[in-house]
């Protein structure tokens, strides 16, 4: 697998998981490019570095494994305007026209208005990075793309179809077809990040079905990364009791008292209510997991990092992904 496209509903930690996947892939001396396409500078935030320019920068070293040193993670924030000018320079030797084009609104038109062109430019940059070679070797062993959210992913990746509404023939259509062949190649997979809640799970299932649909013919769905998973604190029997409100609060209060806590009875009431909520959340988590299983894709479990995501947390998620053989 050389191109990993990572999507997910807003708020599920899509950028975090994309970064962790890039780290995991870079773990045995391999060189990985992590790219973002939405202009949010999320990668710079995660790796705690200044905003990324339109250029590939090394942001991290993958974890070392055994005798092998960790590989390098490079990052790129793709800017559609720069990508357009680069495209003109690369294919038409037209870079010098940039200023005039900008002044007359052409750059604005192509990068924000003309339907589909923006996406072709963004996915085109990923395809270029995947295919780029130095001598006979690929420059990057893998490219991880922090892609638009689930609701837009089908359209985003279906560039050829999107552009065909606009350009039935012509050079941009040719370019779109080339990009499409990279995205549809067996070396590309689309991963879905979700949390175990109703709406994100539903969007994941809808997204998987959409990509598998014939209209998107040949898009390969990869793994489902279940992010921010919480571990149950109670046994199954206790969870059931907590949910039904039949927990033994007297026992709970006795335990609290034994731990040296005063006012144990009123505290026991509050904690029992928290436990009941926890039990409901766990039950929901279980049923959402079952729904995800129906998608028939490999699933990877990533724990909730309760005190916030930082570099250490990122390496921890990368380790999880490696152990579960997502990378």
């Amino acid at each position: 697998m050389r191109l990993h496209v990572v999507t997910g509903k807003g708020g599920t930690g899509k950028t975090t998981v994309a970064a962790a996947l890039a780290l995991a892939l870079a773990s045995d001396g391999r060189k990985v490019l992590l790219m973002e396409v939405e202009g949010r500078q999320g990668i710079a935030q995660l790796f705690d570095c200044p905003p990324l320019p339109y250029g590939e920068r090394k942001v991290a070293v993958g974890p070392a494994t055994g005798p092998l040193a960790g590989g390098d993670v490079y990052a790129l924030a793709v800017d559609p305007e720069e990508a357009f000018l680069e495209y003109l320079a690369m294919f038409y030797n037209l870079r010098h026209a940039g200023t005039a084009l900008n002044r007359l609104g052409v750059v604005d038109f192509v990068t924000t208005l003309a339907p589909g062109l923006r996406d072709v430019l963004l996915t085109g940059k990923a395809a270029e990075a995947v295919r780029r070679r130095k001598g006979r070797r690929h420059v990057y062993d893998a490219v991880v793309m922090d892609a638009p959210p689930t609701g837009r992913i089908g359209r985003f990746l279906n560039v050829a179809a999107e552009v065909s509404g606009l350009a039935r023939v012509g050079p941009i259509r040719g370019h779109a077809d080339t990009v499409q062949s990279v995205i549809r190649s067996p070396q590309t997979a689309v991963h879905f990040v979700t949390v175990l809640e109703e709406m994100p799970v539903q969007e994941t299932l809808d997204g998987v079905a959409e990509l598998r649909d014939d209209a998107h013919g040949g898009l390969q769905v990869g793994g489902i990364m279940i992010n921010m998973m919480r571990t149950p604190m109670l046994s199954q029997a206790e969870l059931t009791a907590a949910r039904n409100g039949t927990l033994d609060t007297a026992e709970l209060a006795m335990g609290l008292k034994a731990a040296g806590i005063e006012d144990s009875r009123s505290l026991a009431r509050d904690l029992a209510a928290d436990l009941a909520e926890h039990a409901r959340a766990m039950e929901l988590q279980r049923s959402e997991r079952r729904r995800l299983a129906a998608a028939g894709q490999p699933r990877y479990n990533l724990p909730l990092i309760p005190d916030g995501m930082d570099l250490a947390g990122l390496y921890r998620l990368a380790e999880e992904l490696r152990e579960q053989r997502a990378a």
Binding site: M233, L234, E238, L247, D248, E251, L252, M254, G255, L256, A258, A259, A268, L271, A272, D274, L275, H278, P306, D307, G308
Partner: peptide
């Protein structure tokens, strides 16, 4: 441990407090 329920409740509470504080 003699009070597994109380222990679990206290750990859950600590986790929630951490999240709330953050």
């Amino acid at each position: 441990a003699r009070y597994p329920l109380a222990e679990a409740a206290l750990r859950l509470h600590a986790e929630r407090m951490l999240l709330a504080t953050r």
